[in-house]
Amino acid sequence: MSAQSQDTAVSTGRITRALIYLVLLLFTLFYLLPLYVMGVNSLKPLAEITGGNMMALPQIWTFDAWRSAWSTAQIGIEPTGLKPYFLNSILMVVPAVTISTIVGALNGYVLTKWRFRGDTWVFGLMLFSCFIPFQIVLIPMAMVLGKLGLAGSVPGLILVHVVYGIGFTTLYFRNYYAAFPTELVRAAQIDGAGFFRIFWRILLPVSGPIAVVSVIWQFTNIWNDFLFGASFGGTSQPMTVALNNLVQSSTGVKEYNVHFAGAILAALPTLLVYIVAGRYFVRGLMAGSVKG
């Protein structure tokens, strides 16, 4: 006996199947097109783009645009390339992801295993914060960061991303721990383990998959953020803001090849994560939308 197949039981005729494959192929090209355009043109000299065909492979293969985007391109007024901004992003993302995931794990643990009156309301309020348009908090946030002396600094951005990230991380861990038998926690209580010990010894060892989901989601979101970076980045702007400055700069010739190389550089970390751990990325997306 074979296991129950997940595939549909619907059967289709040959012509229909051919059409389906054709449509899928067209969409594959559609989704790959921008990546191809960016990749190919970042490896050409500028003249080949302005004078030639965007879809053609490079006649002269060169990494000059990449080198320029990384270390010499004009970002704003400084010819620093994207390198310092890339570092800013790393310095911002690593602590923000770590803190928000740890806090989310603890919150999820409390909200499922130590339930109290009104806990659903507390969670609901935290959950709604994931979905607010962040424009609504921009003005007071700018003022608070100023008061705290964190305006325009990496710690300021870390604070912002932690604050607006814990809603999602709490959601992940809460849904995950909800499926974890509460009897285990009770057994551990009778065995004499306290609040933190139960978390550390009983729940944490089985939290691997959801921790990966949470880390990937937070990493992608924070790395890709533009609004907060542009509003509060000041002199410590993250990669996305720098890329936008590079592309939008109105001075001099438009170095398309450098723009494309920069775009790929900005996309590379999240793309790598997606390639390495795509399964968890999709799980995070789904958990964030279908809260079942």
Binding site: E183, L184, R186, A187, A188, V206
Partner: peptide
């Protein structure tokens, strides 16, 4: 316990 509540790890 009914579910035995054995620590899986």
């Amino acid at each position: 316990f009914q579910s035995y509540a054995l620590y899986p790890n």
